[in-house]
Amino acid sequence: MNETKPSTNEQRNTRPEAAILPPVDVIEDKSGITLIADLPGVAKENMHVRLEADTLTIEGEVTLNLPQGTEATHAEVNLPRYRRAFTLSKELDSEQVRAEFTHGVLKLHIPKAAHAQPRKVDVHVG
């Protein structure tokens, strides 16, 4: 799994609003790839996971529900949106992605296609 970076200026121009790049952990084992991303402040209904061709995009909008009349004096999370995209390799089965989102942590499991999973071949001695 590789991170997708905009390579041309055109792509950069068509890119929508600026977004925070959420930190992620990516772990691979023989069953597939697990991606864990931190998206604090995103409600479940504002969390979007998209798969287009071989690109996996995670995107979420931050809602903080500031009480009326509140003025920000210090902001480290200074954009209302997270976004990050990854390129999936062919052996991953994008049809079978499982997603879980709790306490601002997104957990995705992308299994490897059955044909790409390691198989043990029994050797029979005749």
């Binding site: 970076k5 905009p6 950069r12 890119r15 600026a18 977004a19 925070i20 790049l21 959420p22 930190p23 931190d38 604090p40 903080l64 500031l66 509140t70 003025e71 920000a72 004096t73 210090h74 902001a75 480290e76 999370v77 200074n78 954009l79 997270y82």
Partner: peptide, 19 residues
């Protein structure tokens, strides 16, 4: 293309907003 590559500010974990 990302103003904050770590997703959090220089302050470390947890990132904080104060108002």
């Amino acid at each position: 293309y990302s103003p904050s590559i770590r997703g959090i500010g220089r302050g470390g974990f947890p990132a904080m907003n104060v108002g």
